[in-house]
Design a protein around this nucleic acid. Structure first.
Lengths: 331, 331
DNA sequence: CCCCAAAATGCATACGTATGCATTTTGACG
DNA sequence: CGTCAAAATGCATACGTATGCATTTTGGGG
């Protein structure tokens, strides 16, 4: 069985034109008469011809691919995000080269794929970049954008929720509800998301003279469960736990249930992300909704602009979101 | 700012060799002396050279890419699967071209991407292919494999859990526990997974003279919640609900909780997939574990074999899995 | 019917790599 | 040191497409 690579030449022969003309038919905005365009398209369909993306990419120095890196984590939030990125990018004519990374930090050899395949941009969600990886990409004129992460040490664009403000707003909300003993379960400590939510939350409380208890989590259900158990068995039990994300909050809910505490009477709980599960009756979690669609759109647009005019100043983009009140806080 | 495409020629000049030699250095198994290999690699590092995958793919007619198609669904099971595929394929030297589809059936224009980029194989999870799409791929010598799906109308390989046997086994188990009034909530009716689980379950029960109640779901939490409400408010309430997957079962659990039924005393519930959430204390769901790692490995290996020697007979591969007993069934 | 600008098309080349074949280098042995 | 097979390297070309430039065709006005 032979390799049947139907190429532009064969189409050209069948349509009695030159290979150039075939190429032009498949290049929008070229000068081709309607008549030959029809003729060529017909021939192409007959032979089942499709332009070879490799040859095209080689000569045009354009791959139409975007690299998408994502870390292994049990958070449905990112599954949703992945789908929306894929859809949004396709609408703009780009394809997704996907890399799943197991390390906290994107490694050189994972970037290597992106470079070899000439991706035109890279989106990183839920993972880090060391600054030399970023500069490695920048040297090759490939813009990078962090989704839901940022770092001031690393010169690249980012789009995320204004976690600091959201943390403050949540603190404010909880004080308004009359709570005075509050706790926070962190995510992985080295993530900007966790840090900012904590900082906003704590600063607001401290400005009112309240010092929240901090317990360390890692954005996983199990980690949060353990952390919540510690908090809930303190002699001085908090009245509210704010979890760094929804999964964390769900872990805390289950820990409370295990201890036969009732929610929100004995312990109130607040999460962050508004994943689908947060609305399930078993949990009905009060949480912060990130405007995912807006964030995705911003990310894609920022990246496309950056691909056009390389080297604009990198700056973090922040969106706000809003509080979703459900039944894990008193109303 | 110029396009700085460091190519093999520049490396060759720096290392005082020919471009051919540079190419050979980056082609495993070629004849190159150790000395020049070192010299070239050093020059390559200095210049930051990476072989251009497009040029390489063009001449070798080999893209080292696998197309992965996945449908939009709120099932964490597939998130896990995606990660493992990505990892497994990379270990074999392949990259992932990712396509998220919103339709039940993979469309021609989604396949088009795969063809243009010369993917060497296609993995489809949780979605369908019409037979003309499959033949379209086969015409181009691209093997396709269905993960967790199959169809006897469509001539292509597949790897899935033996859902029929598992359904039987679950029926058997529940009868052993002494239940006699059983119900099943389907997934999307047109999926082989849902059909087979239902068929195995029902056939076993019917062989014992029991007719389970069937309620229609769609593999979503909300659909299952509604379906379970219907079942649980029947005058003749079932003792057990078997949900076509874990998400379905979780929806059923929450419906039961909403009605203040206790689990498993008033109503027992069984799921399928053993997603992480099934083990969370709030649910602690009895379910069927699919041997995901084994399935992934089988899928990848089958695909690679098929890529080597095209055109072997397509046959479904089945694996078994096992029952995980937790607290939603009496022990 | 002719003329000429504009539109359409063809020709030739370039993109960066792999590889068959020719040529040179290596190194073991006589 | 000479010989010669094997190893290493270089040369030239091909992969399939896009595009600048040259050439041909088109069509409208005189």
């Amino acid at each position: 069985m032979k390799k049947k690579s139907v190429n532009a030449m064969e189409v050209a022969k069948l349509a009695n034109v030159s290979q150039s003309t075939v190429s032009r038919v498949f290049t929008p905005g070229s000068n081709v008469s309607e008549k030959t365009k029809r003729k060529v398209k017909e021939a192409a369909t007959t032979l089942g011809y499709r332009p070879n993306a490799f040859a095209r990419g080689l000569i045009m120095n354009k791959s139409n691919m975007i690299g998408l890196a994502m870390k292994d984590i049990q958070n449905p939030f990112y599954h949703e995000v992945l789908g929306k990125f894929s859809k949004g990018l396709r609408e703009k004519g780009y394809h997704v080269l996907f890399v799943y990374t197991e390390n906290d930090e994107i490694q050189q050899d994972e970037i290597a794929q992106f470079l070899e395949y000439n991706v035109e941009g890279v989106i990183v969600t839920d993972a880090f970049l060391s600054s030399n990886v970023v500069s490695h990409l920048h040297e090759n004129n490939i813009p990078v954008i962090l989704f839901n992460r940022y770092s001031k040490d690393i010169p690249c664009h980012s789009v995320s929720c204004d976690n600091y403000k959201a943390g403050k707003r949540i603190g404010e909300f909880l004080l308004d509800q009359g709570y005075s003993k509050l706790a926070f379960i962190t995510g992985r400590k080295n993530t900007s998301t966790s840090q900012d939510r904590q900082r906003g939350f704590c600063e607001l409380l401290q400005s009112k003279g309240i010092n929240p208890v901090i317990e360390e989590g890692d954005y996983t259900y199990d980690g949060a469960y353990e952390a919540a158990l510690k908090l809930l068995t303190r002699e001085d039990r908090p009245e509210v736990i704010f979890g760094a994300n929804d999964i964390t909050a769900l872990g805390a809910i289950d820990a409370a249930k295990t201890l036969n505490l009732s929610i929100p009477e004995d312990i109130a709980i607040v999460g962050f992300d508004n994943i689908q599960m947060a609305s399930w009756p078993s949990y009905s979690l009060t949480t912060w909704e990130q405007p995912v669609d807006e964030m995705i759109e911003l990310t894609i647009n920022t990246l496309l602009i950056e691909m056009d005019q390389k080297g604009s100043d990198s700056k973090p983009t922040l969106v706000s979101g809003r509080l979703i009140e459900r039944n894990t806080t008193k109303s």
